[in-house]
Design a protein around this nucleic acid. Structure first.
Lengths: 236, 236
DNA sequence: AATTATAATTGTACCGGTACAATTAAACAA
DNA sequence: TTGTTTAATTGTACCGGTACAATTATAATT
């Protein structure tokens, strides 16, 4: 693990363990430097990471402060999208409906940048948070990149498996969101009525080399899907 | 304007003017250094900015590449939230329903971290993109920070005014999203039916010193609200 | 007590450097 | 041709430094 990642993790842990609140001040840069025995730029990089994660904010001439949003029921949009596993103390489980190798239709192929003759893994799951139906997910993996999947892997975290066992690194993702109405079958999975409102998110996950490897469509249960997104300033 | 911001803006402009596609390669770091006559770290910082904006991705040992999502109809979630004005060539207009000074109710006061006896500006607008009803917005500004607003300012960009004329800098925001059904009055504003699905986003905007100054509730027209969010990897 | 000028604090911009890991290209061998 | 080894390319991690702007604390003034 890189130094600045390690330091960021330790500072985050410190904030959680001491239950620091919004606006609480952290040690000044110079102290963090000596405390962790690294140069200024390394600490700065760690802090930048935490800033992007929405955990701190820095104010020139003043100090480094804790940033906290105050709505317990809301999950980070990104934590439910493969990234960051910090769902806090919530239990995430899955019913696996399908794991199979097939050919993609035109839409799927286009989103994955492959040919309709290429193989893909199709995975279908219903996901639960603390036992409550949370979403229905249909996702496709490029088989050339993810050569093997089974029900055990899929019941757990696919992303951990892909990054761990397969040794590929995930780079970035494009999420497309829209609101709509549930179809009859979707309503069945989510325990809702047809035409009930829903949030749909399609996501294309890319490896760090830019190649798409996963295209997923998630339909959220509107009563249990409350998301928080912490954004950082107008950067320019 | 800072050097690295300037360079980032120029590179972005270059990409747009030459209509570069996803995967197209940009000049290598060393060339960018000499081209702009700055040090490596300054170029790196510019590139990092562009990476966060979802405009490029970098691959060690290989190069710097253009990143582009391929869905024209979708707007960046952040561009509709005060940040970044890059709505492309779309026309954003507003019907101003209310601009007045009042006292906040308990919820508003709590979200803004002020007392119910403090003054706030209440602004209510219906917003249009290319003439189509896009959303209904109700927002509250802390009067101690934003001492004056009128219909002209509000019809345009409030954020530009706040940052420009008032000289305060916006730091970060917390967005809370959920899906629900429209009330009768909301449906009226959006030209929809009661109980139609909708996306609701509440946002608390903070100054760079961490103080909240704007709390807004937006209700989106579900047919015209399609958002894209470009996320960057699991950072840790 | 309230305002204003001054000084100390503290993060950010920018420089220039070394070492290194991932990728790609070139050279070589089977 | 195909695979393997080697070398060149290229971005990232990390160091340590100077200058500076925004904030906050202190001192001086009204």
């Amino acid at each position: 693990m890189l130094k600045y990642q390690q330091i960021a993790a330790e500072i985050e842990q410190y904030i959680n363990q001491h239950d620091l609140k919004q606006g609480d001040k952290l040690p000044v840069l110079e102290q963090l430097m000596s405390q962790y025995g690294v140069s200024k730029s390394t600490v700065t990089k760690a802090l930048e990471l935490l800033e992007r994660k929405g955990i701190i904010f820095q104010l020139r001439g003043s100090g480094i402060f804790v940033r906290r949003h105050n709505r317990p029921g809301y999950m980070s949009l990104f934590s439910t999208q493969g990234f960051k596993s910090n769902l806090g103390d919530r239990m995430l489980t899955s019913d696996v409906l399908d794991v199979s190798v097939t050919k993609p239709d035109a839409t799927v192929a286009q989103n994955l940048g492959i040919d309709v003759t290429d193989d893909v893994y199709r995975v279908e799951r219903v996901r639960f948070v603390d036992g409550e139906v949370f979403c229905h997910e249909e996702s496709y993996f490029v088989k050339a990149i993810v050569p093997y999947l089974n029900r055990e892997i899929v019941a757990d975290s696919i992303f951990d498996y892909v990054q761990g066992a397969l040794g590929v690194t995930i780079g970035f993702s494009d999420m497309y969101m829209q609101v709509g109405r549930l179809s009859a079958s979707e309503a069945g999975y989510l325990g809702l009525q047809q035409d009930d409102p829903t949030l749909r998110i399609e996501t294309i996950f890319h490896l760090s080399n830019g190649k798409p490897f996963d295209y997923s469509r998630i339909t959220y249960h509107y009563e249990y899907s409350q998301f928080v997104v912490q954004a950082n300033g107008p950067y320019m």
